[in-house]
Design a protein around this nucleic acid. Sequence first.
DNA 1: TAATTCGCTAGACCGA
DNA 2: TCGGTCTAGCGAA
Length: 795
Amino acid sequence: MKTKGILLDLDSIQENEKSVIRLFVKTENRIEIFKDKNFSPYFYVKALDNKKAIKDIIEKEFEGKEKKFKAIKAEESIEGSIKIYFNSTTDLVEALQQIKEISGITEKREYDFIFTSRYLIDKGLEPLNGIEIEEEEKEINSIKKIETETELNFIAFDLETYSETKFSDAKFDPILMSAVTFFDKKTNKLKTEIITTKKGSNVLLVKEEKEIIEKLKEKIQGKDVLITYNGDSFDLPYAKERARKLKTRFDIGIDGSEPLIRRKGLYNATRVKGIPHFDAYQLVRILARFGIINSIKYDLETIVNSIYGIKKEKIKAEDITRIWKTGEGYEKLLKYNYEDSEYTYKIAFDFFPLMAELGKLTKQTLFEVNRSSASDMVEKLLINKSFQEKKLFPNKPNETEIKKRIMQSLKGGHVREPIAGLHENIAVLDFRSLHPSIMISHNISPETINCKCCKNGKHVSPEGNWFCENKKGFLPSIQKELLDKRTELKNELKKEKNELKKTSLNARQHAMKILLNSFYGYLAYERSRWYSFESAKAVTAWSRYYIKEIAKKAEEQGFTVIYGDTDSAFIKMPKTKTKKDVLDFVKKINLDLPGVMELELEGFFKRGIFVTKKEGTAAKKRYALIDEKDKLKIVGFEYVRRDWSGIAKNTQKKVIELVLKEGKPEKAIQEVKKVIKELKEGKIQKKDLVIFSQIKKSIGSYDAIGPHVSAAKKAIKKGKSIGTGSIIGYIITRNGKSISDKSELEEFVEEGNYDSEYYIKNQVIPAVIKIIQEFGYDEKDLILGGKQSSLSAFG
DNA sequence: TAATTCGCTAGACCGA
DNA sequence: TCGGTCTAGCGAA
């Protein structure tokens, strides 16, 4: 019988001592389980004498935990290796240890790879894409990928729980309510309901806590993707534990299992069999790593604000309990629960296409890709290609090798010292995808380096290594494929009118961009299977070479180069030069660049400012530009840093704006004076004084107790739970001697209790002084009344 | 518990 | 209480 569906999830189980793959497939209207009993785990070995080794392997009795077993098959395979099959993954693991007892075996390969990933790659399947199964009574005879439009039913949920202390403990504290959000087909809109035991808006009333869990379970059943915000560590483990306490089961898995909690260091990964658990918190972490979003904190309120610009109200744990007890503010609590669930749904929904595409490209399930690192993704992609090209992929490095790799240090990009001051008519040029384009254009790959044939060829790096011109490198050939496909998709995107198709095309090209940019890092990452220090070294050597060449040529053309960082050149156009001259220059450069390397014009800016450091030389990585539409671009300054107070950041922004937009340093000075006055008068609100900083290691292991550590320590004494990874918001109060003494967690500080001296001298003034100094003013002009200088910017 | 290096700044820490 | 050094965090690319 033929069945078509969408592949949601897979796992492997042991059945009659055999490993069996189970696929969770969305067919017509439900999720069904299909078993594949014909796929055996395997690994490869290399041997001195294959014939003899095969005979020995076949005859070998391996010692299992319970009984002896044999390999089911051993045969000659790719690259002169021997492929050995086993009944189960447990057999394979045992055999892996004992295989070295056979003489003449020199090497083991492809043994450290997850069985389910193996299955997807070998069968050429893509999670969240279509599959066609030839089956009998749910047992798979054959399977293949087909292209299908993915239409899935999502459901998000969010729990509110009771707590006498700061944190709820599932052993004692009940679930008060659970919001669920899903797409309502009747109204074609999102619908959110709150399952709870007290009446109110949008409430789905039940009698007791146990029924909340059961109702939630009922709501989840029939959906295809389960969305939470930090469900990995909170909502799912909590619901599971409460169910146990209340003598019921939270068995939402398609196979009737409960959520499976796997400890992953400090965090959990919680899996639901058959229904991919899509944790929006994990998603947001990934997006932040790839620079897609930028946020100070990772709680839902901050994230919603940074993605959608919407201010969502937060209710603290203790208030939830108070509201529940008194009933006062109950509607607010309902709204809070409602919004948590709805925004969680929205974030996950909006970024689902991107994650789905990353999953398809790297052959990872949604659950996996949702918790995957950049190196994971590149590695899976490479392994997949390796399989397609019938090659053996490299082993993971052992710990000794990893340590050796860490010892090596790599020189990075070139940063040019800026010319400090105010500049006008700036053109910013930059290389399009610098690292990938260097890798592709110079064929940089671990196996093309220093080949026999091309020592004096085109691809000799500035530091001496060279790369083959005859044989295409493994890594760059994949990058080229991605690049070409991406260009094609972007062209299609331009023509496409249908919004849904546009979303999907855009997600695909974005996924490719992310992967493309991760190759270089993977090459230089110590745990990489395709590690090549010398290759990575060549990439950066070339990057330095090319960007310096651009600067040199720009100067030869009569431009002044005012700055450059890694892949960019900021050039100042003298009066005699036009925009066309800049574009012609770019064009000319591109004629000489090799392969796919390309210089682009990022934009024209009417003004820009670079400042000096304390020691007097110009500061790199901090500047501000204003374009022709008066749009500011502020880089590196305190304004973009979370470890500065709002009052300092906002004042700095205003100063930059006044100076760049209107060329009025005098106005800027007035502005700063005004802020200083308000600070002195105690008028500044708490929220503008908070400084955020992360506790990056265990609180006891600090040598230097800075303000954030000090505030954290005090808060811990008061019963707050703060650990590695916590982001602290603190305020410098009037109570104490040193800055650290005065530092206190924001929530413990009364409105108005702040050290105005600190905020003036250590926050506002340092944030603006370097900028106004460029106009001939100094600190005295900010504190004293009179104006010391009358220099004007454009006078 | 998983990409890299370059660069800036603050504030503690320490010895004179 | 000073100045130099070191620890720490965060951002740019």
